[in-house]
């Protein structure tokens, strides 16, 4: 897993050197590679196009991170490329493992690959009075579908999420600080974002879910905020609850971003009260 992430990071560094002439967006507005690879917060994809590429420019990011909650560990690493502040393509690899003592029938590793694309439809995050609106798609492929399908009764090992996001950064908005709000509507059948397969065996399938993020830039380099992500709760065998997080993001320069969060994933498969930490490091251009 970590080998794969390092290879991705190395590739991305090479790529970002190649395209690193100009990247003009304001510090912090590159956003982060969220858990599924899209530019956004920690768990929610935003309308922002990842990286610092403004109009006519390339941007990119590579990230490595993980979530550790009571009984589960999720590693995630990926890359994204943004062009013209218009189009973003991304890839993310996720690996879910159950802590040894909690494993039971889940004595296995579940890997997932997520290919993403996003297009900014209209608006600008900062300069225009209306929000920036983007439309995105995430093609998810679960590489270890035996447990989701045979044990939990999921319908499929793959699914395609479609989402619409609206993001806006208000300058001098809250206690004289800059405030970012994002709302996302997602059409999905992904159980625990696909790690537990897609849909339920009886055919109950896609539904719309709501996601939201709010963040405040305390200064140029530090932001704090929180996120909410509804889940489709399609599996008949186990419950699925919304995800929450509270994050601190640090942008020491346009090259590096670090985010740390407290996450509450609620009930995941056999385990409830899955709370813990999330950390991700991103190299950005």
């Amino acid at each position: 897993m970590f080998k794969a992430v390092f290879i991705l990071l190395a590739l991305s560094c090479a790529a970002s050197v190649g395209i690193a002439q100009e990247a003009s967006k304001i510090l912090g507005t590159s956003a982060l590679q969220q858990i599924e690879g899209a530019g956004g917060g920690g768990i929610v994809p935003w309308a922002t196009i990842g990286g610092y590429g403004s109009e006519g420019e390339w941007g990119g990011a590579a990230s490595a991170g993980g979530v550790q909650v009571s009984d589960l560990v999720l590693d995630a690493g990926g890359v994204l490329i943004g062009w013209n502040n218009r189009v973003e393509v991304s890839f993310m690899q996720q690996t879910l493992q159950v802590n040894e003592l909690s494993s039971g029938p889940f004595d296995a590793v579940i890997q997932q690959h997520i290919y993403g694309a996003k297009v900014r439809a209209f608006g600008h995050l900062i300069y225009e009075p209306w929000p920036q609106i983007s439309v995105g798609v995430q093609q998810k492929l679960n590489l270890n579908p035996n447990i989701p399908i045979d044990v939990l009764g999921a319908d499929s090992d793959r699914g395609t999420d479609i989402y619409v996001s609206a993001s806006k950064l208000w300058l001098h908005a809250l206690a004289e600080r800059n405030l970012l709000l994002n709302v996302t509507a997602r059409y999905t059948n992904a159980n625990q974002n696909g790690l537990l397969g897609f849909g339920n065996g009886d055919g109950s399938d896609y539904r719309w879910v709501a996601e939201a993020s709010a963040g405040v830039f305390l200064n140029h380099h530090w932001a704090i905020g929180g996120e909410y992500r509804q889940q489709p709760d399609r599996l008949a065998s186990v419950d699925e609850s919304p995800w929450w997080d509270a994050f601190v993001a640090w942008f020491p320069s346009k090259r590096i971003a670090v985010v740390a969060a407290y996450v509450d994933l609620g009930t995941v498969a056999l385990w409830d009260e899955q709370r813990g930490g999330y950390v991700s490091i991103q190299i950005t251009n």
Partner: peptide, 26 residues
């Protein structure tokens, strides 16, 4: 927009160099 972004970056750098508080910058 990249020109506008670039000018905003320069203005922020100019205010930073003068130790302008973040609230006043915003």
């Amino acid at each position: 927009r990249s020109h506008f972004d670039s000018l905003v970056n320069d203005l922020i750098a100019a205010m930073d160099a003068n130790d302008t508080p973040v609230a006043a910058q915003n």
